[in-house]
Design a protein around this nucleic acid. Structure first.
Length: 286
DNA sequence: AAAGCGTGGGC
DNA sequence: TGCCCAAGCTT
């Protein structure tokens, strides 16, 4: 892969995301990465600014209540991430965000991607960073397949083999950005691609994915309407909206199917996203 | 290791 | 409209 061409394209097309400003702390980068897990970057930016204003350090977040943290999370989705961030802050204690992949991996809610992103983008370590964008670009440019195969351990070594010795982190960011802006999942803008001339998928004549690959991709997309996830979201909406604990009846009003409603409510209690007080009223955790 | 976990925008 | 997708992690 022409890493130079990818970086030059990035130099010209990089989005001005707030956490890319020089001087952003390790905590700021970690926060941006967690917020961006499965949530579009455009929706993350304002939320990130708000969090950094309220809780600029892990010590600040650790001192906040979980209820405040969950309300500030707003509608970014997957609110367990907010709880994990709060736990991260508690674990860091009076210390600092670690720069080693292994130590980052040990933090709650930090997996293979996020650990490497922080180590690479903040600390400048030249480690492979593999997210859905990188997987897709690699599949197309290197393997000639339109759809990336299911995530596998193998990818780390494959992407590591691409890393230039100089400016590795810059290239890693560029590769992700290329996947986000040009080599997109649905309608890639190949005319704007800096590595079109060497892209394996282009050289193979832009083959359509097989029936099997298409079926696998389709299966990956989860239902939402009518699932427990939707009900959990509706229940949490009630708790986020009111400053005081609510009666069971207020929760019952959001969904007609009682069995599903109780199941969703029980799972929220189990996850620590909901709590009951001694009067039997429900609220966000303290 | 497959499945669960939110939410909203684009087409 | 309904489907597809989005800087994944956990169990």
């Amino acid at each position: 892969m022409d890493t130079q061409a990818v970086v030059e394209w990035f130099d010209a097309h990089e989005r001005p995301l707030p956490w890319r400003e020089p001087g952003t702390s390790a905590w700021g980068v970690l926060l941006s990465e967690v917020m961006s897990q499965q949530t579009p970057v455009a929706r993350v930016a304002p939320q990130w600014e708000e969090w950094m204003r309220r809780w600029p350090t892990p010590q600040d977040l650790a001192a906040a209540s979980k209820a405040d943290v969950l309300r500030a999370w707003g509608k970014l989705g997957y609110p367990r991430r907010a709880l994990r961030l709060w736990e991260c802050a508690k674990e860091i204690g009076e210390g600092e965000v670690p720069g080693d992949v292994d130590k980052l991996l040990a933090l709650p809610g930090i997996g293979e991607y996020t650990a490497r992103a922080v180590a690479c983008f903040h600390f400048g370590h030249n480690v492979p960073v593999v997210d859905t964008n990188v997987r897709r670009v690699y599949a197309r440019a290197e393997e000639g397949r339109f759809l990336a195969p299911p995530p596998a351990k193998r990818e780390l070594a494959q992407v590591e083999a691409l890393l230039p010795e100089e400016n590795g982190p810059r290239f890693s960011a560029a590769l992700m950005e290329l996947g986000a802006l040009v080599c997109t999942a649905k309608n890639p803008d190949c005319a704007a691609c800096p590595i079109k001339s060497t892209c394996a998928w282009q050289l193979a004549g832009c083959p359509e994915p097989s029936e099997e690959e298409t079926a696998r991709a389709k299966k990956r997309v989860q239902k939402f309407t009518g699932t427990d996830r939707q009900v959990r979201g509706l229940l949490l909406d009630v708790l986020r909206a009111t400053p005081h604990p609510v009666e069971q009846s207020a929760l019952d009003a959001v969904w007609p199917d009682a069995a599903q409603r109780s199941r969703a409510q029980a799972s929220l209690l189990e996850d620590g996203l909901m709590d009951v007080n001694d009067e039997g009223l429900f609220h966000l955790p303290h």
